[in-house]
C-alpha cells in the first residue's frame, strides 16, 4: 500500500495504527464467525500478511520519526541562531538609525553655521564701527545700569518714560493690526536684514536730556523721612515710575 506524498509522518503513523485496529477487528470477526461465514485459509493468511506488513511499516515509520526528531533538533538550533542574528541585525539597524539622525542634525547645524559665516563675510563690520557703537549704547547707560546706581540717580537703568512713549508698544492701541504686524517684522521682508539706524534710536538721546527728564519724573516724590523705610521707598519710587509710564501708555 503506497503512502501519499506530502502526508506528515504523524498522519502516517496514526493511519497505520488505525489500519492495525481495522485488520485485527477483521481477523477476530473471521475467527469468531460460523464455519460457512469464515474466510478461506488463503484469505486469512493474506490478512495476517497484511497485519505483519503494517507492523513492519509502523516500525520503519517510527525509525523515520526518529530521524526526523534529529532533524528537528538541528532545526531548533538553526532557528535559535537565526533569532540571535535577527536580534543583532535589529540592534545594528537601531544604532545606524541613531547615528543617521545624529549625523543629519550635525550636518544641518553645520550648514547653518556655514550660512552664518558666509553672511558675516559678505556684511563685514569694522572693529572701529563696533567700538563706536558699543560706546554709544553704553555711554548713556542704556544697556546696563551703572554699578553704583541707586533710586534717584538720574543715570538710567531701564528704558525711560520718554523712550517707552516713542516705542511701538505705546502706540499699539492707536494703530490697526495690519500696521502693527508690519512694524513688528520689518526685517523679514525682501530677504535682507535691515540694520538699525543708530541715529534714530531712542537711546541716542543726549545724556543731559535723559537726566532732565528723569529728574522731572522724580521731582514730585517726597524725600524719605525715616531711615528704616528706605527699602519701602525704593519700591514706591519704582512703582510710581512704572505707573506713570503705564498711565502714559494708556493715553
Amino acid at each position: 500500500m503506497s503512502t501519499p506524498r506530502g502526508l506528515s509522518t504523524k498522519e502516517k503513523l496514526l493511519g497505520i495504527v488505525d489500519d492495525v485496529e481495522t485488520i485485527v477487528k477483521e481477523l477476530l470477526e473471521t475467527t469468531i464467525a460460523q464455519k460457512q461465514d469464515k474466510l478461506s485459509h488463503g484469505e486469512q493468511s493474506q490478512i495476517i500478511q497484511l497485519l505483519m506488513s503494517k507492523n513492519d511499516d509502523f516500525k520503519s515509520t517510527l525509525n523515520l520519526a526518529c530521524e526526523q526528531q534529529e532533524i528537528d533538533q538541528k532545526m531548533l538550533q538553526l532557528a535559535s541562531e537565526v533569532y540571535k542574528h535577527d536580534q543583532e541585525i535589529q540592534m545594528l539597524q537601531k544604532h545606524l538609525k541613531e547615528a543617521d539622525t545624529l549625523l543629519s542634525t550635525a550636518l544641518f547645524q553645520a550648514k547653518q553655521k556655514l550660512d552664518q559665516i558666509q553672511k558675516a563675510q559678505t556684511h563685514q563690520v569694522g572693529s572701529e564701527d563696533l567700538i563706536r557703537f558699543a560706546h554709544r549704547i553704553s555711554s548713556t547707560n542704556a544697556v546696563a545700569a551703572p554699578a553704583t546706581w541707586a533710586p534717584g540717580d538720574p543715570r538710567r537703568p531701564y528704558p525711560t518714560d520718554i523712550e517707552m512713549r516713542m516705542g511701538l508698544l505705546a502706540r499699539i492701541n492707536d494703530m490697526p493690526i495690519s500696521q502693527v504686524l508690519e512694524n513688528m517684522a520689518p526685517s523679514t521682508r525682501g530677504g535682507e536684514h535691515q540694520y538699525p539706524n543708530f541715529t534714530q534710536q531712542p537711546w541716542y538721546v543726549a545724556s543731559s536730556d535723559v537726566s532732565s527728564s528723569v529728574s522731572s519724573l522724580f521731582a514730585n516724590i517726597p524725600e524719605p523721612t525715616v531711615r528704616g523705610n528706605t527699602n519701602h521707598d525704593d519700591v514706591e519710587v519704582m512703582s510710581t515710575d512704572s505707573s506713570s509710564s503705564s498711565s502714559s501708555d494708556s493715553q
Binding site: 509522518t9 504523524k10 503513523l13 520519526a65 526528531q69 532533524i71 532545526m75 538553526l78 537565526v82
Partner: peptide, 25 residues
Amino acid sequence: IRKLPGIDYSKEDQIKKLEALRKQL
C-alpha cells in the same frame, strides 16, 4: 504519536525547511 515532536511534516518537507533555515542564516 500525537506528542512526538518534529513529525508534523514529511521528511522531504522537513529537509526543505531545514535548508531554508540554513539559507536564511
